[in-house]
Design a protein around this nucleic acid. Structure first.
Lengths: 149, 149
DNA sequence: GGCGGAGGTCGATGGAGTCCATGGTGAAGA
DNA sequence: TCTTCACCATGGACTCCATCGACCTCCGCC
C-alpha cells in the first residue's frame, strides 16, 4: 500500500470503468503492473467492488429517509439485523452508539410505501420503536474523499 | 427505459466493471447494442457514474458518524451548504424535513479528528447546533436495490 | 558475492470496444 | 392497406485493451 496504490484507488473511486491502460498512463506504470496492483487490492478487500451510481428518482425510488431504531431490551440483535437485511428498501445499516441501536438509510418510491415500510419495521420482533426523518433533497451522496497523503 | 435497461442498470450496480460483451451475453443483445443503451443511460443522467467501493478502515478512515445540523433562524442555506461541501470529510449531505435541516455522513480517521470536525461545523456561520451519533460498525452500505418490475 | 523474491517492463495474442452499413420492426398518417 | 419514417439490432472490420509468459532489476539476506 504505497502512494501509487492510493492514487489507483482514488482514480477508481472517481471512475470505476477506467481501463487498466488509462490508469497505467495516469500513474506512470505499465498496464500489467496496474492490473496486478488492482488485483491485489481487490484480493485484500481494500477494493470491495464497483458500483454504478444511479439517479434513484429516474428509477422510481424518489423518496429517501433515515430511520433510527430502538431495540427491545431483550432483543436478539442478529434476528433484528437479519430481518432488516431481508428488506431490500434498506440501503445502508449502521450499528450505532446511543439510544438508537441502528440507523438505516432507506429508499422507496412513495410516501405510502415509506409508511408501509415503517410499519413493517415496527412490527419486527426486537424493535421497540423507530424514528423517521425524510430527506427533502439529496445535496450529495457517496462523495469520494480525496487522499491527503 | 424498458426492462433491458433496468437489467443493465442492475448488472452495473452489482459490478460496474463488467465488460459490454459480458453485459450483452447476460441480457441477450449484441455488444454494440448494449454499448449504445448504456451510453444513452449515461447521457440521460440515469447512470451518474461508476465508483469503486473501498474498505474505509484500510484507508485510515475507520470512524463513521452521522451528524444532524440545526440552522440559525437567519442562516443563509447556500452558505452553510458551501461550507459543508468544502469539508472533504462530509461524504453525504441530505436536506431534511424536521428540526435538523441537514443530515451528514462523515468519515474520519480518529475520534480526535471527529471532534475537530464537529467544532469546525459548529463554528460555521449559520449553524446553531449539531447532534452527532457515532457508528460502531457498518452492517452494510449502498446495497443495490434489486428492481421489482 | 550469490541467491531468492517482489515487482517491474516488454512482446504477443486473443478478445473486447467501437464505428459503420445494412436490414428489420412498429407506429402514424394518407 | 400501404407508405413512410424513425429507431434499433445485427454483423463485419479495425483498433485498442487485457492478460499471459519471459525476462530484468532492485533489495535484503544468507
Amino acid at each position: 500500500m504505497d502512494s501509487i496504490d492510493l492514487r489507483l484507488i482514488e482514480l477508481l473511486r472517481e471512475n470505476a470503468r477506467s481501463s487498466y491502460a488509462e490508469l497505467a498512463r495516469k500513474v506512470g506504470l505499465s498496464a500489467p503492473a496496474v492490473h496486478e496492483r488492482v488485483g491485489k487490492l481487490e484480493a485484500a478487500g481494500t477494493i470491495q467492488g464497483y458500483r454504478a451510481e444511479v439517479d434513484h428518482e429516474a428509477l422510481g425510488l424518489g423518496v429517501t429517509a433515515l430511520i433510527g431504531i430502538i431495540e427491545d431490551s431483550g432483543a436478539d440483535t442478529d434476528d433484528v439485523l437479519a430481518a432488516l437485511r431481508a428488506m431490500p428498501e434498506v440501503e445502508s445499516c449502521y450499528f450505532m452508539a446511543g439510544v438508537e441501536s441502528y440507523q438505516l438509510t432507506v429508499r422507496v418510491g412513495t410516501i405510502a410505501e415509506l409508511e408501509q415500510l415503517i410499519v413493517r419495521i415496527n412490527r419486527t420482533p426486537g424493535v421497540a420503536s423507530t424514528r423517521t426523518a425524510i430527506a427533502l433533497s439529496t445535496k450529495w451522496e457517496n462523495r469520494p474523499q480525496p487522499h491527503l497523503g
